[in-house]
Nucleic acid binder design. Structure first.
Lengths: 148, 148
DNA sequence: GCTTGACCTGAAGTCAGGTTCATGGTCTAT
DNA sequence: ATAGACCATGAACCTGACTTCAGGTCAAGC
């Protein structure tokens, strides 16, 4: 199965211009063309999935280009590619930990403003010591206000 | 307890220039000064924690400024603030779901390249049908290759 | 009273990651 | 054979979020 750039763009929820930009930047090496038009095959679709997750892990375009260059270079670069995925996995796991703490903060703030709305004032909830919060809220508060 | 801009910057792992930029952009309204120098009190530290998590949820600086304007405006904006936190909570939960799928892809790729390294070639692992993967890898693969 | 280090300002500069524009080619259906 | 919906290009442009710079203030320690 192959796709046009428009179909691939819809599959990934990206503008066509972004896919062309990725190609220009060397993120889709060796793509086939039919009368000038790019042909997205299974290889390119998998490349887009990889781009998606490498980007999500915080990698920059130029580093993704480096990875794609390694895939072109062949088996001698397996160790680099493995090391890259291991490093990005670690980075993303740490990022997820941070984001869970951010989410706890948002949940705490939801409770805070629900309470303030109900009271018509922040006075009571703002003056309340954290150890008087409901237990599940206290856990959110602690997570959101813990060190680093 | 109060802090200088340098101390606050260290607390949040941010450059001093970023805190000044936030102040300039209206993200730290009504901050006290002592002979010209900004004084970061509990209010500002909590504001920085809120900025941190609103940013993490995908909010732009100008939208965070809007929120800070609401906190200055008083109790009449509790409903807007609550709605904002609820919306950002939802957005971040969805983002976390996406990132977990990205992490599954990274884990799958780690396994893929571990196997390729061990084999000295991608041939075997690349030709293997997903239903022949080890069960835990199959779960990662399915998660990473499921519809958006 | 002078040096040092940390603070201040407004204006300009930087960078990544796209996006837009002007112009033109190619297919498919009517 | 013409319209409409795709596709293409290079170059210029844009945006958000900082960062840097030049020049100045202030408090503390020697």
């Amino acid at each position: 199965m192959t796709y046009t750039i428009g179909q691939a763009a819809r599959m990934f929820g990206l503008p066509v211009s972004t896919l062309r930009y990725y190609d220009r930047e060397g993120l889709l090496p060796g793509m086939e063309r039919r009368s000038g038009a790019r042909v997205f095959g299974e290889k390119e679709i998998e490349a887009l999935r990889v781009i998606e997750c490498l980007k999500a892990s915080g990698l920059e375009i130029r580093e993704i280009r480096q990875f794609m260059a390694w895939t072109v270079e062949g088996p001698s670069t397996y160790p680099q590619r493995l090391a890259l995925f291991q490093a990005r996995r670690k980075a993303l796991e740490e990022e997820l930990g941070q984001l869970r703490r951010m989410l706890d903060m948002l949940k705490y703030k939801c409770w805070y403003y629900e309470t303030a709305c109900a009271d018509g004032s922040e006075e009571r909830v703002g003056a309340m010591a954290p150890d008087r919060f409901p237990p599940e809220i206290q856990a959110l508060y602690d997570s959101a206000h813990s060190v680093g």
